[in-house]
Design a protein around this nucleic acid. Structure first.
Length: 1039
RNA sequence: GGGCGAUUAGCUCAGCUGGUUAGAGCGCAUCUCUGAUAAGGAUGAGGUCCCAGGUUCGAGUCCUGGAUCGCCCA
């Protein structure tokens, strides 16, 4: 007998401790590296890491993303694929600048310029990796296997050079241009605000502005309009009226000419009362499209119609006009609104902006020149009124964006900016999107698809400091040259650039290739989303080097990020690769939802409900957290996060596994049965059943993981563990006590296979099981191959399901009768059809033992316990009978069940008459079942029932008492601190009836409690206990 | 204002292409087993499947409208 073939399980499960031991083991053995080396020759399966910014602390939502980024690569690795996992860091951008500004107490760009760009950017460079140590520590702790030593960094010169190549390539395709864009702008700080900054708390505030209804007389009859009719427009920003360029209407909306106070005005029909009051008299109605093209007099004459172009001061059709507010006619000032600007571009209107960067009017606005625009609202309105051009002015409360730093109301303002003409590749992006496998599916055509359909050109440039410099040089005559590499820059300038960031790159100048004027770089940096979108090639410094390495790893098989990346990384990846390679850069994407607290509230620092990952990892462990994220729900639906929910991972999955493993090692060691080579050798139906369940689970888990469905895959594993723990082990205990090699072999095989299935989900527990059970095998479960499904026996699975249901019903019946399971009963009577009966008979032993009955009997049609019943199968009969289905159902129920049973048994069709026609029905169309008769004490569920024979005779009673004695002796053994395999000498004394039972079942008791010597009626000393109300003295002595 | 999603037991979630007694876990109550023992098991209570229409022989499931919540956009 070998001494402890397996390391004994130690006490209670301490998940964090277990994990720390395995982390050390993986580190020492280099398991991650080995898992990659072992697949070096495998077919690549490509994962792209969406780079996080390491200038903030990692939170629970980062753990979520990293868990999902881990599970599928681990699975594919076990499938034999080569899954490299290169880490990455997003280093540039406004969040980094803002953090540094806050640190330095800066409030504007002037502060930065004064401080010096070189020093400022040096601070940014430091700041961006402020918490990288923390990120690395957390990443390792949660078991996310990724190569952080060789991570790409978007600030590296090589990375930036690849970006320059990309921009030059895009430019060469004619897709890079300089244009105008309307942006929220703070006139005090002289700075454009990003959408990120508009999202800052306090940015939107409720303010009261003046809303003006302005009259714009038509200059010449047009369609239903006559000269002198007045268009009425409505605006909450009177200061923009000076640059009114056009009036927008909705083509299909109904407008009216209405008479008010003797004048004829035009508004949308739906808004007549709201804008004109009840006295207005409608003269005629027409669609918006009928007045498109009509010319009108502008509210002010500072800028002429001709300056705007042919469509200046005319009515235009637009898609953004609504009949919710105002008049349904929208004042359009090209430079001061997103919609306005887009309309201007479509209609070919010049983007005239008479407002200077400091927020004052320029010289074109006559007497108002030099004044802050917002301050002119009242005067402008008075001016309109004096000329009879104001219909009405009123206070209007709305939320309006302000600068989050200085509280100045922002202006929407057209500024020059560099663009990529993504709208020209919109259709290609849509086509490529169609090839992407989205999880969840609805994002493809929903959020993401809609976003693509409404694609506008990518505003690439930022007037900032810490970012990839836009590689555009320009000379005094306006020629531009895009630089695509450091070599090219050196060739032209003679300077080899070391750090391509500002301000150094700004100092590099060269003669214009066209006119020899001095060329200097434009001041802008590029949007950080372009940085990360270019990671497929830039991470390898392709194509400037490693082009083959890039090509072998493009596109990605899998990416995964939170849903807020739809317009972020998911888009920039697709846009960049479509621009450059005319191809999507990822095949599958898994989206993750938001993490809310247990009450469904968003986690925020101010609410104090943020759950910090370390507290969970330290107290509960990484596996429970991973399992919670992976299996509790579909990840994109978001989480209601609570520590209780994580405990459930432990209670339902990890603890049962730990217990079963402990159970196995205990008895395998006790009997000295070590690992047995080869396939498991099932010795009975329970063995065959659990192996069949295992096979089914392997198949399903593989399928679901292939489909990126960790949730369903995990739940499948969960069910198998429950079956194993609550049924297989429970029903096989005696064999383990006896050291049954077949049982030990099967259990070991099942546990080892589960450890492989579980490895991608809970890498710690999985490896613990593996290392414990296969000490001579692979160093880690993570170096193992994914299991192949064994053969299934579905009829056995069905039979076992029936047996378990019979047990459930039998136990319920015992509960009703209030008779303990320890008390044997004569018989259980099971109501079942012939088929079920055949299945159950093979498993009678299992059911008998579990119910503790001497005999299993079956009721059949002849039995008084039940009768046959025949019901229609709606699923098969429904399509055939359609409307007549209720009649058909009645006809079926009227059939004689016994007769139907006989016919079907001999494969003959059953006929029913419906609506005067005969219809043959086959076995599939009819459900024949046993229905228990009323009036019996039994438990039933659906068509199944189990009745217990409750009469207790002397024999049964004594046997019951014998089992009580066993129970008492076992308790005494435990109290004496004996090991499970210790042999004892046992003496009993006390109540005569108990002793009678003990004597009668002496051999049984001795075997149960491992007594080698057993005396009845002679216990001198010993523990006195009460058994079933009777006194028993138990003396136990270890041999 | 627009788009997308969600709404099933007290809580967290399943429910496949429509098929006739809607499931699981937790919690609660009652009971129970024990050679996995600070674990395990059973039973029970608990549901107008958000509401209203519609399609259908039949709707938690499909369609329309509405409500509430969330995310994104304006």
């Amino acid at each position: 007998m070998a001494e402890n073939p397996y390391t004994p399980q130690q006490g209670k499960l301490d998940q964090p401790l277990l994990e720390s031991q395995l982390l050390e083991r993986w580190r020492n053995l280099g398991v991650f590296e080995k898992s990659l080396e072992a697949r070096a020759g495998g077919e690549p399966w490509v994962f792209y890491e969406g780079p996080p910014t390491a200038n903030g602390m990692p939170g629970t939502h980062h753990v979520l993303a990293r868990v999902f980024k881990d599970v599928f690569p681990r699975y594919q690795t076990m499938r034999g694929r080569r899954v490299e996992r290169k880490g990455g860091w997003d280093c540039h951008g406004l969040p980094v600048e803002l953090a540094v500004e806050a640190e330095l107490g800066f409030t504007s760009k002037d502060d930065i310029e004064e401080f010096g760009i070189a020093e400022f950017n040096a601070r940014c460079r430091e700041s961006v990796f402020k918490h990288v140590g923390e990120w690395n520590r957390l990443t390792e702790r949660i078991g996310f296997w990724i190569d952080l030593d060789d991570a790409y960094r978007t600030l590296d010169a090589s990375y930036v050079e690849s970006l320059w190549w990309a921009i030059k390539t895009i430019s060469a395709k004619g897709l890079l241009y300089e244009g105008h864009k309307v942006v929220p702008y703070c006139p005090r700080c002289g700075t454009t605000l990003s959408s990120h900054e508009l999202g800052q708390p306090g940015a939107y505030r409720d303010v009261v502005d003046t809303a003006a209804f302005v009259r714009l007389p038509i200059t010449a009859a047009h369609g239903p309009l006559e000269a002198g009719d007045q268009l009425v427009v409505w605006t909450t920003t009177p200061w923009t009226l000076v640059s009114n360029a056009a009036v927008a209407v909705d083509s299909d909306l109904t407008y009216v000419r209405a008479s008010v106070g003797g004048q004829i005005v035009v508004v949308a029909e739906a808004l007549v009362e709201k804008s004109l009051g009840e006295s207005a008299e409608v003269l005629s109605k027409f669609a918006g499209k009928e007045i498109v093209g009509a010319a009108y007099e502008p509210p002010f004459n500072f800028i002429s119609a001709a300056d705007y172009g042919p469509a200046g001061h005319t009515v235009l059709a637009a898609d953004f006009v609504t009949a919710e507010e105002g008049t349904g006619l929208v004042h359009t000032a090209i430079a001061f609104g997103e919609d306005d600007f887009r309309l201007g571009e479509q209609a070919g209107l010049a983007a005239i902006n008479p407002v200077k960067p400091d927020g004052s009017y320029d010289e074109r606005i006559g007497s108002y020149a030099g004044r802050q625009v917002k301050d002119c609202d009242a005067d402008l309105i008075a001016d309109l009124e004096s000329r009879g051009r104001l219909l009405r002015a009123e206070d209007y409360e709305h939320s309006y964006p302000h600068c989050w730093r200085c509280s100045t109301p922002l202006l929407y303002y057209a500024k020059p900016s560099w663009y990529i003409a993504t709208s020209k590749i919109r259709d290609r992006m849509l086509e490529e999107n169609a090839t992407i496998d989205w999880h969840p599916e609805h994002v493809k055509d929903g959020r993401f698809g809609k976003w693509l359909e409404n694609n506008v050109d990518w505003a690439l440039s930022r007037e900032r400091y810490w970012g990839t410099p836009l590689p555009v040089w320009r000379c005094g005559r306006g020629h531009t040259h895009v630089i695509g590499s450091f070599d090219e820059l050196e060739e032209l300038s003679g300077i080899r650039i070391e750090d391509p960031h500002r301000p150094y790159v700004d100092e590099v100048a060269f003669p214009c290739p066209q006119c020899t004027d001095r060329m200097v770089r434009v001041p802008e940096v590029i949007d950080v989303w372009f940085d990360s979108g270019a990671m497929p090639f830039a991470q390898h410094h392709a194509p400037l080097e490693n082009q083959d390495r890039f090509e072998q790893r493009f596109p990605a098989d899998f990416i995964c990020e939170a849903l807020d990346q739809t317009r972020g990384w998911f888009y920039s990846l697709l846009a960049v690769s479509t621009l450059l390679f005319d191809k999507a850069s990822y095949r599958s994407v898994v989206c993750l939802g938001l993490i809310l607290d247990g009450d469904g509230q968003k986690m925020s620092k101010s609410k104090g409900n943020v759950v910090e990952p370390w507290s969970i990892l330290d107290s509960q462990g990484a596996d429970p957290l991973r399992w919670y994220f992976l299996t509790s729900k579909q990840p994109w639906d978001g989480y209601r996060f609570s520590t209780d929910a994580i405990d459930e991972s432990t209670r339902r999955l990890l603890l049962p596994l730990w217990n079963v493993l402990g159970f196995f090692t205990l008895y395998a060691n006790a009997s000295g049965v070590g690992p047995i080579a080869g396939d498991p050798q099932p010795a009975n139906d329970l063995d065959r059943w659990i192996l069949s369940r295992l096979a089914a689970t392997v198949t399903t888990v593989s399928e679901r993981l292939e489909a990126f469905d960790a949730t369903a895959a995990g739940r499948e594993i969960q069910e198998l563990v429950e079956d194993l723990s609550n049924w297989y082990v429970r029903r096989s205990r005696r064999r383990f006590w006896d050291g049954d090699e077949a049982a030990l072999g099967v259990l070991r095989h099942v546990l080892l296979t589960i450890s492989k299935l579980l490895a991608p989900f809970c890498p710690f527990m999985a490896d613990h099981i593996h290392v414990t059970l296969d000490p001579e095998g692979a160093e880690s479960v993570h170096l193992c191959d994914w299991p192949q499904p064994g053969t299934r026996d579905e009829s056995l699975e069905a039979a076992m399901a029936a047996a378990r249901e019979a047990v459930t019903l039998g136990l319920a019946a015992r509960g009703q009768a209030k008779i303990k399971v320890r008390q044997p009963l004569r018989a259980a009577v099971i109501v079942a059809t012939e088929e079920e009966r055949a299945a159950l008979e093979g498993l009678a032993e299992v059911v008998r033992e579990e119910l503790n009955v001497k005999e299993l009997r079956f009721a059949d049609a002849a039995d008084e316990l039940a009768q046959l019943e025949v019901k229609p199968n709606y699923r098969t009969m429904g399509p055939t009978f359609g409307k007549d289905m209720p009649l058909a159902a009645k006809a079926v129920e009227a059939l004689d069940a016994v007769h139907v049973g006989d016919l079907l048994k001999s494969n003959q069709p059953v006929h029913i008459n419906v609506a005067g026609r005969e219809h043959p029905l086959g076995a599939d169309d009819l459900i024949v079942s046993m229905m228990p008769l009323d009036g019996y004490q039994l438990e039933r569920e659906g068509s199944h029932a189990v009745a217990l024979e409750l009469t207790l005779d002397e024999e049964l009673l004594l046997e019951g008492l014998a089992r009580e004695v066993v129970h008492a002796v076992q308790a005494a053994r435990r109290d004496a601190g004996l090991d499970v395999e210790d042999r004892i000498s046992l003496s009993l004394d006390g109540d005569q009836r108990l002793l009678e039972a003990a004597s009668l079942h002496k051999d049984y008791i001795a075997a149960e409690v491992l007594a080698t010597a057993f005396e009845v009626g002679t216990a001198a000393s010993g523990e006195e206990v009460l058994v079933d109300g009777r006194k028993l003295v138990v003396a136990v002595e270890r041999n």
